[in-house]
Design a binder for these strands. Structure first.
Length: 270
DNA sequence: CCACTCCGGACCTCTGAAAT
DNA sequence: ATTTCAGAGGTCCGGAGTGG
């Protein structure tokens, strides 16, 4: 099967969008839908918070068109919106595939907050933080917590127990100061940098030596091996040498670019 | 001419942070 | 404690462009 070259990053869009929905989507709706897939599937997430200003910036549509487009996508059961937070959280909807292979769109799961009539006092009522934060059972941890826990256990297999309330509390406090993306990047850098291997191998995969210490997270976030660059450094490298952006590979869900191995060896040789 | 899509602007409500 | 302000989500309306 023909596939894109390895250096081209892409986001998977389900075929039913092209086969069954394209005709009925307006240009604005399609742009918004693509943006939602990019921000969710493109970052290996089921949902993501996207502000109107981001949608306006990335799609080039006006705010009123964004509003109408979102309404249309919800009506067509292509996205779901969670309005319980300050910024809308969008989730892409997939059709139900039956045995015969034809697909039908699942009925929209209407959230409780959507079913209530809008009143002056609660049009954008926010869920109190306590109900979200005081979660000690692994069965009802927030999505962000799960993302961090799963990522840690992927990098350092089975070293973080989601049923341990003290560990969960540490992660919650870390999430108060850092984004999920930053924490994941810090974990990744921690796993790659030589500092821990050379100096503190006993601390490397210990969650208790990471999550409770914001300064450690911040330090790990800054750790980079020699072939890693942030965006500006990558651009500087491209403009000051015979490299192109194609010679760099973006690490999944991070702002870090790595010089591809082949080019890296050549560069070291010369 | 009409339907549709989209835009720009005005306006509203609400939240949270900062200033007073 | 109260006020102010920015940012966010949302609606409405008039108008422009386009295609049938």
């Amino acid at each position: 099967m023909p596939r894109l070259p390895d250096h081209v990053s892409f986001t998977m869009i389900p075929n039913f969008i092209f086969d069954e929905q394209l005709e009925s989507l307006s240009g604005g709706e399609l742009k918004i839908l693509l943006m939602i897939y990019r921000k969710t599937v493109g970052f290996d997430k089921k949902s993501d918070k996207i502000s109107y200003s981001q949608l306006v910036e990335f799609t080039g549509l006006s705010k009123s068109t964004i509003s109408q487009g979102i309404k249309g996508l919800v009506h067509k059961k292509l996205v779901k919106i969670d309005r319980t937070e300050n910024t809308n959280r969008y989730t892409y909807c997939l059709p139900d595939i039956n045995i015969s292979g034809s697909s039908k769109i699942e009925p929209e799961v209407v959230q409780k907050s959507n079913t209530q009539p809008v009143r002056k006092s609660n049009t954008q009522k926010k869920v109190p933080k306590e109900t979200e934060k005081n979660t000690t059972s692994s069965s009802n941890l927030s999505e962000d917590l799960w993302e961090v826990i799963n990522y840690w256990n992927t990098i350092f297999p089975n070293t973080l127990n989601p049923d341990d309330p003290s560990k969960v509390k540490d992660i919650e406090e870390a999430l108060d100061q850092f984004t999920v993306k930053q924490i994941k990047q810090a974990i990744f850098m921690r796993s790659k940098c030589s500092y821990y291997r050379d100096n503190k191998p006993q601390l490397l995969n210990k969650p208790s030596a990471f999550f409770p210490y914001p300064e450690t997270i911040a330090n790990d976030l800054e750790r980079k091996s020699r072939d890693m660059y942030d965006f500006q450094e990558m651009i500087n490298k491209v403009t000051s040498s015979n490299l192109t952006t194609d010679d760099f590979e973006q690490l999944a869900d991070s702002e870090i670019w790595v010089l591809k191995k082949q080019r890296h060896r050549m560069l070291i040789k010369t």
